[in-house]
Design a protein around this nucleic acid. Structure first.
Lengths: 226, 226
DNA sequence: TTACCTCATTTTGTTGACAATCCGGCTTGT
DNA sequence: ACAAGCCGGATTGTCAACAAAATGAGGTAA
């Protein structure tokens, strides 16, 4: 569910995926100055493909690289996570609006079905943050692709979501408000089904804004380690 | 003004910059299936660094690469340019709002001075699209960095602006409304100077929306070749 | 004549070795 | 004793050769 492998042919792609998940899942500590040869032995590849993957990761801002000094995983802070949510708010708002205008009826049906399955998962696995998170990503993923805006979907799915996941793993932040989020999701889908782009945008922005405020609250309570 | 070289040390960075500008300026035709060795001889590099640069370019969506089949510059369409403007609208709106909240007084002074110099340039070089475009990029560049939102600035400056420039070179689209744009810029800066984030966001969104409608109009008039 | 299959060439993907550069510890002078 | 300069080790950046895969041409069969 996390990602469709989709025929990983070249070693560089493989390296890229491995590294990306390793960074996102926190297997590579932030600020850790890690050598190329060590990475090679760790993932069973050679330096050529690895180097290419490193370039891509750097281009996406998941790691920084000083010439002749090695690579290190990007450092994170809670403030940056909040900034990320500010970006999500406007971009996913746009995605929701365009999705309302462009999604096919079938896609909307699938979206509704997805929400139903999420509801069941939440009821069954009460408090299992994993399913919540995955369901949440699934929902937002569908909206992004449904916008039919190639670059927008690319930026959301290719950059922002990985970034958000990384921050949340690092800061050990779970969504923490499953029922409320599900209700908001339902309302967004309703707006999309009624082809009300403006409303869908408004609801999506409010939804993400609420999530951001939830994180902000946790920070103020000192729950989050910066 | 286009970009600060900032000590291009490694060959891969050099290759990346060369390729990027070549793609943006249209020296490499869209859909052109170009070989690696040809690129090497053209830019005096070897395949190692080139390959790394190619990966970065692909990651940014400036070219597509099928395994064992070669790379080709991404094809463009006028519709995609409009979609890009839709993204710019919401993202730069956010940038303007945050810039109004966070820019220093000195930065705002510089921004005003920049506009003054733009006005002079427009008056002197009447209709010289080059200065217009450069001035426009300079303005938006300052707003993006002034937002103090690292990821937002990175996405705007690193991805979107290059993309927009590429499309506009390809479609031979010039801004075409210098005085009006300058007035809109002035109003945005005023709002920022008054620390009115909401207004700055609104004005910026309207500004980019107007630019998009301008392009849309040209398309309908058949001026733009798709 | 057309469609399909085979094969050779070209191009990409990968590998290992070479050279340039930086970091840490040591020596040396004040 | 402390600071500055220097040297060795290690790591990164770069290069050229090898192997695998796909495209295109050519031939043969229906």
């Amino acid at each position: 569910m996390v990602q469709a492998p989709a025929q990983i042919h070249t070693r560089a792609d493989e390296a890229f995926d491995c590294l990306q998940t390793a960074i996102v899942m926190g297997d590579l500590a932030p600020g850790e100055k890690i050598g190329e040869v060590e990475l090679c032995s760790r993932f069973n590849l050679t330096r050529g493909p690895l180097r290419e993957a490193l370039g891509r990761l750097e281009s996406r801002g998941l790691l920084v690289r000083r010439p002749h000094a090695g690579v290190k995983v990007v450092s994170v802070s809670a403030e940056e996570l909040l900034e990320l949510y500010r970006i999500r708010e406007v971009m996913e708002g746009l995605a929701a609006r365009q999705a309302a205008e462009r999604m096919t009826d079938e896609e909307i049906r699938d979206l509704k079905a997805t929400l139903d399955s999420h509801e069941k998962m939440i009821e069954e696995a009460q408090g299992q943050a994993y399913y919540q998170a995955e369901g949440d990503y699934d929902f937002h993923h569908r909206i992004a692709t449904g916008s039919r805006n190639t670059k927008l979907a690319q930026m959301l799915l290719g950059d922002l979501y990985y970034m958000v996941r990384m921050y949340r793993y690092r800061l050990s932040t779970s969504a923490g408000r499953p029922h409320m989020a599900l209700g908001e999701h339902r309302r967004i889908v309703e707006a999309i089904a009624q082809r009300d782009g403006e409303l869908a945008e408004f609801l999506m922005k409010r939804h993400i804004n609420a999530a951001r405020q939830n994180i902000e609250q946790k920070i103020q309570q000192g729950v989050l380690t910066i």
